[in-house]
Design a protein around this nucleic acid. Structure first.
Length: 577
RNA sequence: UGGGGGAUCGUCUAACGGUAGGACAACGGACUCUGACUCCGUUUAUCUAGGUUCGAAUCCUAGUCCCCCAGCCA
């Protein structure tokens, strides 16, 4: 990251340019304050990670701050389980918020602002039912009609709104609506509801409020009272921006003296701002789904083993899969930030994961599909510990001892009685190097009644032992192994992509995402691993040489009963042929 | 046929009137006690049509295609 070419793309995004220009012009006193505002109604996924990286990234680059704010204005959908999980996920991703807030902490402020709108004749209490409101709204091509309640007096509106707040009316009986323009081409401006009656207990405020503010109204005010300068959100909010601006222009939050005390009570110590909303495109990935509804369905229909299933694109899922947080961050840097809808290939993410893991994961040996290899010229009682380096390039990783004996497990696919063209591994009469040991020649096979090879015999060329003068002799292949006597049994969970097609959201062929689920995306295999691998700490990444990167499961793994999840395979230019 | 956005290699992105560049993918090759890593090389792009200009991905005009919006969800 030393030159412009390798600098993070996000650093040169159009948003970066806007912010840089604002800072240079001294807007907002040159301050940069952002926020990541999830609704606590589900787990965070890779798409959220883009927003997190962007918001915290921009704040970091401009020496600003970034808040975590729970956009919890709809108690019916929200739960503390999610507010806890979201905090854990943001921290795991590697970010620390400047302040933690809830939109619900601002209910009093929001209420005061609504009264101001009413006093200024900019909002009214509407008695229309939900269906009636829909009828009055018009359509995309026809203007709407004014509500018959639109011209109530300020006094009546104030009285009614206070009684809404007092809980006098039933759910859905009335709403508070902004008085804007029922003929606007932008439907968001056709007198949108800003408060609704919902006698539902809230995960943060309990039963204190029978009315709850709507997103468009609550979000801009929340941004303003937190002193946010740049409010970054996704493209679908572009036509909400006029409403965002309308509310703030009517309210002039920074100059509302009556907010000083409530802001202090909400833990807000800074000055309010006049924030600006900037929209960017969501980040989509192929071979997965990212909508909360579909992820929720995968969990509730038990198509996966929970929100943190390693097949899930949730942050909890990719974490359990073994994707390092640094790889997720690098991925969103590579993907960039623009206003173009796009679907990024999963291989870009895998590339980032391999980059990080190649540098950071210690090497170990494991055999997933064992075939017995007997070295006839090694004594049956022979045991030795061979020293292996833990990383091929970085000596800082140190070394470990790997036990070696007469009988080994090798990978079944590393032996072929009739080798395909280009096969570099063990064949009858052929030679191959046993990693760290020396060159062996296959001398014999043992087959079962069905003709399957169950045991391979070979002899070790003593001159080629590691450290011996003949060790440099070239052979085409090197294979990994585990000493049968010393091997530790481990459960390995092999994962592949969750969907069989690149765009599971595409329903043009009459199928839905559920029809494209890859039922074989999880395979559990009993493996033999070298003793040092069993000692891996939970959530520790390793590379099982020639197989892939694996992570010791953060919940189930113990040195006695090791459990590894396959994070990603190694690139394999042979398998592709 | 209302409003708001967007179109550059297969994918993601850079360019801010001056050599269409990078990453990932793919394909070759070198190296290798991981068919990994690393290194080298190759293929492939400005939605269309006009216009302005010495020069256009960029500016103008007219089209085309794609995305979002009619919750008392966010």
């Amino acid at each position: 990251m030393t030159d412009a070419a390798s600098a993070p793309a996000a650093g040169h995004s159009f948003i970066h340019q806007i912010v840089a220009a604002d800072v240079a012009a001294g807007k907002q006193g040159g301050a940069v304050k952002t926020r990541f505002p999830p609704e606590p109604n589900g787990y965070l996924h890779l798409g959220h990670a883009k927003s997190i990286c962007l918001n915290f990234g921009i704040a970091g680059e401009f020496s600003g701050t970034c808040n975590l704010r729970f956009d919890d204005t709809n108690p019916a959908k929200e739960d503390v389980e999610y507010v806890d999980a979201i905090q854990a996920d943001v921290r795991w991703l590697g970010f620390e918020w400047s302040a933690l807030h809830h939109a619900s902490d601002y209910f009093e402020i929001l209420y005061l602002c609504a009264e101001k709108l009413i006093r200024d004749g900019k909002a009214f209490v509407c008695d229309l039912s939900a269906e009636e409101v829909r009828e009055y709204r018009g359509t995309l091509t026809e203007p709407g009609r004014n509500s018959p309640w639109r011209d109530r007096s300020v006094e009546e509106n104030l009285d009614l709104f206070r009684r809404m707040r007092a809980g006098e009316f039933a759910d859905g009986a009335r709403t508070l609506r902004a008085k804007i323009d029922m003929a606007s081409g932008n439907i968001n401006l056709r007198d949108p509801a800003i408060y609704r009656i919902r006698k539902v207990s809230h995960q943060n405020t309990g039963d204190a409020w029978p009315i709850y503010p709507m997103y468009d109204y609550a979000h801009c005010v929340s941004d303003a009272v937190e002193g946010i300068t740049h409010s970054l959100c996704t493209l679908e909010f572009e036509d909400h921006r006029p409403l965002y601006d309308w509310c703030l222009d009517q309210l002039d939050v920074p100059n509302m003296a009556e907010l000083a005390e409530p802001m202090r009570r909400a833990g807000l110590t800074g000055r309010a701002s006049r924030p600006q909303q900037i929209e960017f495109a969501r980040g989509n990935l192929d071979y997965t789904v990212m909508s909360k509804r579909k992820l929720m369905a995968l969990v509730s229909e038990k198509l996966v083993d929970g929100w943190d299933d390693p097949r899930m694109p949730t942050l909890a899922g990719v974490r359990r899969r073994g994707f390092p947080a640094a790889a997720i961050r690098a991925f969103w840097d590579r993907a960039g930030v623009t206003k173009q809808n796009s679907v990024i290939e999963f291989s870009v993410l895998e590339g980032c994961v391999r980059d990080v893991l190649d540098a950071s994961a210690p090497r170990r040996m494991a055999v997933l599909d064992p075939l017995k290899l007997v070295i006839d010229n090694v004594d049956a009682a022979h045991e030795e510990a061979i020293e292996f380096s833990n990383h091929p390039k970085n000596p800082d990783f140190g070394t470990r001892k790997v036990p070696f004996s007469r009988e080994l497990w090798i990978e079944r696919e590393d032996f072929a009685e009739v080798p395909p063209k280009g096969f570099h591994r063990l064949v009858p009469g052929g030679e191959v190097r046993l990693r760290g040991v020396g060159i062996v020649r296959c001398t014999d096979l043992v087959k079962d009644a069905d003709g399957h090879v169950v045991e391979v015999h070979c002899t070790l060329d003593a001159e080629t032992r590691h450290g011996m003068p003949g060790a440099d002799r070239k052979v085409k292949g090197t294979i990994h192994w585990v000493s049968a006597k010393h091997a530790v049994a481990a459960e390995t969970r092999l994962y592949e992509r969750l969907f069989t097609c690149a765009d599971p959201d595409d329903t043009s062929d009459g199928k839905t995402y559920a029809d494209h689920i890859n039922r074989d995306a999880k395979r559990v295999v009993q493996a033999w691993i070298e003793p040092a691998a069993a000692e891996t700490a939970r959530e520790g990444n390793v590379q099982f040489e020639r197989l892939g990167y694996f992570v010791a499961d953060r919940l189930d793994h113990t040195p006695e009963k090791p459990v590894f999840n396959r994070t990603v395979t190694l690139r394999d230019s042979y398998a592709k042929r």
